[in-house]
Design a protein around this nucleic acid. Structure first.
Lengths: 160, 160
DNA sequence: CGAATTAGTGGGTCGGCACCCACTATAGGG
DNA sequence: CCCTATAGTGGGTGCCGACCCACTAATTCG
């Protein structure tokens, strides 16, 4: 194999011009975290949207797809596909709304809740790795700052 | 037209299950920042990698492509394309290394520096929007925390 | 009732990003 | 001199996320 020469420590040699940008760090760390979780989800043939949908159903209860669309900013057509897959796997149930039969009400199943709990645990494991350098207090500070940034966000479409 | 009914404030209705994850916020805010900058770059027919390469050349001086590959974690083949485009536009110059004629040394031009300065300014404008809710002190705290996270990163490939 | 609106679905496109392989040219060791 | 390794290039692939359009079914309004 040879070489593998690490004359340039792979990452620490990144241009200061970029490292000076908080948004660059935000984007880089966020992408990495996202990627790690996505890998774990992929092992179960799931994608990030699946988790987001399950979380929304768990947190807010059964809803019509149109509500999920508004809430998560997902494309209706894409949601249809996600819901399809989740239903096929038994994680959600779909039923025509009796009151307005155009609507399809989606409900998380017991299996869905179990899955979501596992996914949440995995997400927290990833988070623990990412936040490893920070102590509990610092993590809270970080979370608080991020939350404020999030709330101020232009909400430019898309929960994922 | 009509409706436009905003019964569900688009973003604030996101599932707490997700909002409790710092990594989720990180990823969401990062992605949004990244996206905004990418849009600005796109107006000039540039992508994020172009900026990263220019930054590396500006910060570290002329280098062979192999060094950029190591530094930025970009695929050699992809870098060739980026360098091609930058050279065609006059932002960098390529020359065979006299000592080792396999290598192609890349140098940023004056035009390249001007461009980079403009891009950096745009990136900071985006950052100002994203960080709007934070005062100067908080921004520093955030940057410090992010830097520590970044340094601890598994450096899982890819500067962008 | 008929027309317009809304919910959901199926089937696409498009761009970006990461990746991979085959190939050329050069270098360097035996 | 030959053989292997390295640098760069060109031409791909595959995945994913975002988006868009056409269509059906159901509802609502005039």
């Amino acid at each position: 194999m040879v070489s593998d020469l690490p004359p340039l420590p792979p990452g620490h040699a990144l241009p200061p011009t970029l490292l000076d940008l908080s948004t660059y760090l935000l984007s880089r760390i966020g992408k990495s975290s996202r990627g790690r979780l996505a890998e774990l989800l992929a092992e179960r043939d799931l994608r990030l949207w699946d988790m987001a949908v399950l979380a929304a159903l768990s947190d807010f209860g059964p809803q019509a797809q149109r509500d999920l669309v508004r809430r998560l900013g997902i494309d209706p057509s894409d949601l249809a596909k996600v819901a399809d897959q989740l239903a096929a796997a038994g994680y959600v149930e779909r039923a025509r709304d009796a009151a307005d039969r155009r609507r399809v009400s989606v409900t998380i199943t017991a299996a869905g809740r179990v899955l979501l709990a596992e996914l949440d645990e995995q997400a927290r494991a990833v988070q623990d790795e990412v936040l490893a350098p920070l102590d509990a207090g610092e993590r809270e500070v970080l979370h608080g700052l991020l939350l404020r940034l999030h709330r101020a966000q232009g909400e430019r479409r898309g929960a994922m």
